[in-house]
């Protein structure tokens, strides 16, 4: 980033001489600093998991959720500035409701991220706004089956089998690539997701964290809800065991 400080990086409406938009890249930095979030698209559902860094022991455990529900069958996990994540999620709810009203059926995730990508992209065009400092993973089970997308601060979005954003994304992606995602059940994917989050947290061990997971599966009746506590407990126990044996 040789152009830092040359004045070409102060506005989303300015290109640098070599054709980059630095403000969008800086927004990406806000995402890189935050706790890892991952999404898994498997045979019969979707699993979302986040590494929620706990900045104070006075926080009420489990109360401050980072995974949000957009529609009955759509979930969203955001990494980056939490407030920006909420704004994107609110917009996603509005768009989902609008699609529902227009077509009188549950929206497909593809239609939703198409609109949401446009919304995020608009914030990369003008000096009067800044881009969103958040990457969002969206997962759904709709009439086309399970689907998973990531929207970047630039507004670009891609579909994934397994997705990871935030600080530990590189390691998480490597781990996701080892899995046969299309053969896993959602229940199995919960165990894997917990393991990956515990694994990537190893690099930031000095900070406390809380594992937060949601899913859309046959067991949840196609609804996006928090993973049942007993399954989370089971997954966490296994993740810790695996970690301990791996470290020996």
């Amino acid at each position: 980033m040789t152009s830092i400080g040359t004045g070409y990086d102060l506005s989303a409406s300015t290109y640098s001489p070599d054709g980059r938009i630095f403000q969008v890249e800086y927004a990406g930095k806000a995402v890189e600093n935050s706790g890892t979030a991952i999404g898994l698209k498997v045979k019969d559902g979707i699993v979302l998991a986040v590494e929620k860094l706990v900045h104070s022991k006075l926080l009420v455990p489990g109360a401050n959720r980072r995974i949000q529900t957009i529609d009955r069958h759509i979930g969203l996990a955001a990494a980056g500035l939490p407030a920006d994540g909420r704004t994107v999620a609110n917009r996603a709810r509005d768009e989902a409701a609008n699609l529902r009203e227009t077509y009188r059926s549950p929206p497909t995730l593809k239609d939703l991220v198409d609109r949401l990508g446009h919304f995020v992209q608009m914030y990369t065009l003008y000096s009067s706004v800044r881009p969103f400092g958040t990457s969002t993973i969206l997962g759904a089970v709709d009439k086309t089956g399970p689907s998973l997308y990531v929207i970047e601060p630039s507004g670009v979005f891609y579909g994934y089998h397994g997705a990871a954003v935030g600080k530990g994304r590189q390691l998480a992606k490597t781990e996701l690539e080892k899995l046969k995602l299309s053969e896993l059940t959602a229940r199995e994917a919960v165990i894997e997701a917990a393991r990956i989050i515990y694994l990537v947290h190893e690099d930031a061990k000095e900070k406390e964290f809380e594992l937060e997971m949601s899913w859309i599966s046959p067991e949840s009746g196609g609804l996006h809800v928090a993973v049942p506590q007993e399954l989370v407990d089971e997954a966490e126990t296994k993740a810790k065991e695996e970690l301990a044996s791996g470290l020996e």
């Binding site: 704004t87 609110n90 509005d94 768009e95 409701a97 609008n98 009203e101 446009h118 919304f119 608009m122 914030y123 003008y126 009067s128 706004v129």
Partner: peptide, 19 residues
């Protein structure tokens, strides 16, 4: 209009929820 929250709002929005 430079404020993107004004553009392409879903039709059934309550007035001004973000601003």
């Amino acid at each position: 209009d430079h404020f993107p929250t004004n553009w392409g709002r879903p039709r059934n929005d309550a007035w001004d929820p973000y601003a």
